[in-house]
Amino acid sequence: MKLAPIRYAAPATMDEAIALLGSCDAKVMSGGQSLMPIMAFRLATPELIVDLKKIPGLDQIVIDDQGVRLGAKVRWCDIESDGRLAQANPLLAEAIKHVAHYQIRNRGTVGGSVAHADPASEMPAIAACCEAVISVIGSKGARKIKAVDFFISALQTSLEADEVITEVLLPAWPAGRRWGFQEFARRRGDFALAGIAAFYDLDGQGCAANAHIAVFGASDRQHRLPGAEAALNGRPVTPETIAAAASAASAEVDPPSDIHAPGEYRRALVETLTERALAHAAK
């Protein structure tokens, strides 16, 4: 399992990186934790690896009135050790605990995960749930892409070949927001068989409002579940409401079968996990 021949470049500026990306069949390497395994199997055989390691910046977590700005090179361990996130976006903090293993959390990055777009991974789920805005830059300049437009299908995004992710913005998180995160994987650190990231706010009457429920691991990409959200919005969050939302969630997914689980199991799991995530939120 040796990699196919590659060329390597570690440019010092983003302009150089973009130029290199446009020059041939090239791949950006950020942490490399998703890219290296597929290159080891020769499932990915790019001509050129463009390593972002020398490009300054992109590695900060900024929390301001806009929300949480995650630089593309922010690593999972950076999120894990940033105590501010428990308030600024507790859903993110919880979700990232489930990402892979210790060594991978030391190198894997937000930008890498979002660009890789594995349908069972956590960061894209948080991006989908929180309506993240993904900043990218390329030869045609910089642009911002909404999460809903970014994740197209399994391992497919709207990123152009010469574009690099620079930042993921998670919009501001009001105090008092209720949230829950649930995933079920075969073992600690494995990709989820299914997962749910959810939050809602409470209106003046104590009813749920602005519900956001996103599913991952149960379809070709991370996406929100409007039926489940509708079942929650405007209602007091009782066990009955939660059950109705969970039932709606399972009805609006059509998970694929693979060696780890049949689709019908994943569908049932979506119901269970939605119920548990919302029960956590309601606590």
Partner: peptide, 13 residues
Amino acid sequence: GSLADYLMPTASD
């Protein structure tokens, strides 16, 4: 065909 698909016990299990 990989150890990501062939699941062996880990320290947490």
